[in-house]
């Protein structure tokens, strides 16, 4: 069964781009455009990995991350931070990798493969 990735970003284009790209690479995807929605999708879809934009308005990305790490079931799901603001990943204690926008998609794919396999 292919692995599933949750893409969290408030920019439709980024979501579209990343989901299409990841599907091409053989992953299943789901997405959310804010923190609340992301929590919902996380519980419903139980993804193997999350890519997270931390600069969404109202800090909802950070809040989503905090809730996730407090939840026994999901606290070990790996997170890759994708952000337009350098240094913003400091809000996430242990990201697997950090990427700045615009993302180098091959490097992103490498990081994902290393973490959850093909």
């Amino acid at each position: 069964m292919s692995k599933k990735i949750l893409v969290v970003d408030d920019e439709d284009h980024v979501v579209k781009y990343l989901t299409i790209f990841l599907q091409d690479c053989g992953y299943e995807t789901c997405s959310a455009s804010n923190g609340e929605e992301a929590t919902e999708v996380l519980h419903r879809e139980k993804p193997d990995l999350v890519t997270l934009d931390l600069q969404m308005p109202n800090e909802t990305g950070t809040r989503f991350y905090r809730n996730m790490t407090k939840d026994k079931e999901f606290k070990d799901v790996p997170v890759i931070v994708i952000s337009g603001i350098p240094g913003r990943h400091l809000a996430v204690s242990k990201p697997v990798a950090v990427f700045e926008k615009p993302v180098d998609r091959n490097a992103l794919l490498d990081a994902i493969k290393k973490t959850i396999g093909e």
Partner: peptide, 20 residues
């Protein structure tokens, strides 16, 4: 810079989808 980075990512995404 932040705003333009986001737009570049959108452009890149668009180009990727067109190519595909």
């Amino acid at each position: 810079a932040h705003s333009i980075k986001n737009i570049m990512m959108g452009l890149e995404g668009g180009i990727y989808v067109v190519n595909k």
